[in-house]
Deep mutational scan, measured.
Amino acid sequence: MAAGGDHGSPDSYRSPLASRYASPEMCFVFSDRYKFRTWRQLWLWLAEAEQTLGLPITDEQIQEMKSNLENIDFKMAAEEEKRLRHDVMAHVHTFGHCCPKAAGIIHLGATSCYVGDNTDLIILRNALDLLLPKLARVISRLADFAKERASLPTLGFTHFQPAQLTTVGKRCCLWIQDLCMDLQNLKRVRDDLRFRGVKGTTGTQASFLQLFEGDDHKVEQLDKMVTEKAGFKRAFIITGQTYTRKVDIEVLSVLASLGASVHKICTDIRLLANLKEMEEPFEKQQIGSSAMPYKRNPMRSERCCSLARHLMTLVMDPLQTASVQWFERTLDDSANRRICLAEAFLTADTILNTLQNISEGLVVYPKVIERRIRQELPFMATENIIMAMVKAGGSRQDCHEKIRVLSQQAASVVKQEGGDNDLIERIQVDAYFSPIHSQLDHLLDPSSFTGRASQQVQRFLEEEVYPLLKPYESVMKVKAELCL
């Protein structure tokens, strides 16, 4: 049975990233139509530049190519590739079939990587351009969430054990800070992308030097003109047959890092959902379990974690691919890159769409948070109580021993009897502590235990987050809708 299948058929496997999760716009960027249309555009740009620099290419040939950029006979191309065992030459023939007058000058002087690699770089750039505003929107939604809850005390956790208090907004800023680093890295790697350009079979530009009869300047002009037509500021000066596969490492490393950030955020949300302090959106008709109707599973956060793990592992592909590119190139890269580049971007696209949807509907339960604080705060307040007693004339050592005994009794009630923490009640009825009984409410005010959390939130948002989001103001209103 021949390899390949009808990918629109229910009898043929289709990647869930495309069929179930990723956005239509990201799927289109990695589609065959987008790819092969870009090949034709690159052939047109090459012909236009070659004509401008004096090669015998007519206006009629150029116009014929322009008129057929979208006229792609995919069936013919597939048949040609089956016959020739070469995808680029299959599309040269297919393009030439609908451009008979231009057929002889299509791909003039070029090698397969002229269309293959340059198209990949265009796709990487455009895919990054799709991700950047999506990530900015996630940051914006979380920034709104953090600002609104900047002063809401909550129990902090280290080692997932109760620690000092923080605020809900401050905790959210930990998430935002990681995503801001990801946004900066995505922008950097996007701006650092260079075009492969017009380089020939081993990167020496020998074929173009021959076409222009040894004119170095025209060869350099050709490279520059096509690079500018493709919208790049610069091209690699040095290439082998391909652009260095280190570029793929750079791009997928940034995406993998984004995956790590999203995994951490969504894990926190899942843990908070278990504590009943916070939940992701839950639709009115949504079913959490087929057997347990009360369940409210954090399905979206779980999906993000599941896909983020996949995204983090994909960076190993370009690392290994770059390491086995012998001399000017081997074909070890080809099949692998067809999979890992598309999957990385479709996965990143999915987790950003999902995280935006989550961040637009996060639900906080202040009463649950308050109750958990009441359970733990008495123990945390013991040092403040000791200091207040010393100020009232008591002995630190005597007070410490009193607190120690009462704390152990209260802990026994919590752990052995399943009761509430009654340390404060014990202190309130103990005559030894009568000098500070009137101060206990103040000493137990949760806001006095959150330090500068709310001020940190305000400063972080104003100095770091809002300036970073400013270039994306025009796209901030787009909502994230999930079908599944």
Results as ranks from 00 to 15, higher is better:
R14P: 12
M65W: 00
H107T: 02
I122K: 06
I427E: 06
T52G: 12
H159A: 02
I105Y: 11
E463K: 12
R125T: 07
G361C: 15
L108F: 11
E401F: 02
K170A: 02
T119W: 02
K229D: 01
L482C: 08
I373L: 13
T239G: 00
K82D: 15
E80G: 08
E213N: 15
E80M: 11
N68G: 10
T166K: 05
N357E: 05
L314S: 11
L174Y: 07
T239Y: 02
T52V: 12
E360W: 08
L406V: 09
N68E: 13
L352E: 03
F208E: 03
T201W: 02
A47T: 01
W39A: 09
D117F: 02
S395F: 06
R171N: 01
A22H: 09
K134Q: 15
A480R: 15
E279L: 07
I358R: 05
L55K: 12
Q221H: 13
R190N: 09
Q397D: 06
I369R: 05
D144I: 15
G214R: 10
V226N: 01
V219D: 07
V247M: 10
C113G: 12
Q210S: 12
S395Q: 14
L461W: 07
S334K: 02
D268Q: 05
S261H: 04
T119V: 13
F208G: 05
R303G: 01
H442P: 08
L444E: 06
Q356V: 05
Q41V: 10
A291S: 05
V254T: 12
L152E: 08
D445A: 12
V364L: 09
E462I: 12
T167V: 04
K276P: 01
A143R: 02
I265M: 15
H310M: 07
S31L: 01
S306F: 05
N297T: 02
N118K: 00
Q439M: 14
G109L: 00
L46Q: 04
H263W: 07
Q177C: 13
A206P: 02
C172T: 14
V138A: 13
L440Q: 07
T330P: 04
L331Y: 02
V315R: 08
T58S: 13
R452K: 09
V262I: 09
M292R: 02
I287T: 13
T167Y: 01
T119K: 04
R196H: 14
P16T: 15
I386R: 04
I287Q: 02
E473V: 12
Q428I: 09
G259I: 00
F433A: 05
A392F: 08
T313H: 06
G96T: 11
Q63D: 15
E425I: 01
V168H: 10
F460V: 06
F282N: 12
P298H: 03
T382R: 05
R188D: 08
R396Q: 06
T52M: 10
L42H: 04
K284H: 14
Y13R: 09
H310E: 03
T158F: 00
G8W: 15
L17V: 15
I122G: 02
A480T: 15
S140P: 01
P467F: 06
L406W: 07
I176A: 08
D182T: 04
T242S: 07
R188E: 04
D178N: 06
S12G: 14
E48I: 07
S301Q: 08
A47C: 06
I57C: 04
H310W: 06
S15G: 15
A102I: 08
F28I: 07
L211A: 08
I72A: 07
Q221L: 12
S261V: 03
A322D: 05
N118V: 01
C98G: 10
S151R: 11
S140T: 15
Q325L: 13
S334V: 07
L155T: 00
V92K: 01
A322M: 13
E213A: 14
K35V: 07
E48H: 06
L255T: 10
F433P: 01
L307R: 01
D349E: 10
V29W: 04
K477Q: 12
S448K: 15
L252F: 08
Q184T: 13
L258D: 01
D73W: 06
P153Y: 04
T38A: 07
Q210E: 14
A47Y: 02
R374L: 06
H217E: 10
I62H: 02
K264W: 06
E60M: 12
L44Q: 12
V414S: 04
Q177S: 14
S31G: 11
M389V: 07
A335K: 04
V368N: 01
K229V: 07
Q205N: 13
D11I: 14
F74S: 13
A235N: 12
L131R: 00
R40G: 00
L423F: 15
E70A: 13
I265F: 15
R141L: 14
A344H: 02
R37D: 12
Q51F: 05
P366H: 10
S253Q: 09
E401V: 04
R337I: 06
A206S: 05
K82P: 13
H437V: 09
H217M: 12
D182E: 04
L179Q: 04
V262G: 08
A235H: 13
M312P: 00
V368M: 02
V219T: 10
Y13W: 14
V475W: 09
D398F: 09
P56I: 06
S412L: 13
K470L: 12
P298E: 00
M292H: 04
L46E: 04
K402W: 00
D73S: 09
E376F: 05
R309N: 09
K170F: 04
D59W: 08
G54R: 07
A206C: 10
Q51G: 08
G169E: 01
N421W: 03
R296S: 07
D332E: 02
V368P: 03
H93V: 13
E425M: 11
F30N: 05
E283P: 00
D87F: 01
T347E: 06
S261C: 03
Q184I: 09
M292N: 08
L355V: 14
H86I: 02
K284I: 09
L211T: 14
I373F: 03
F232Y: 07
P100S: 10
F30D: 03
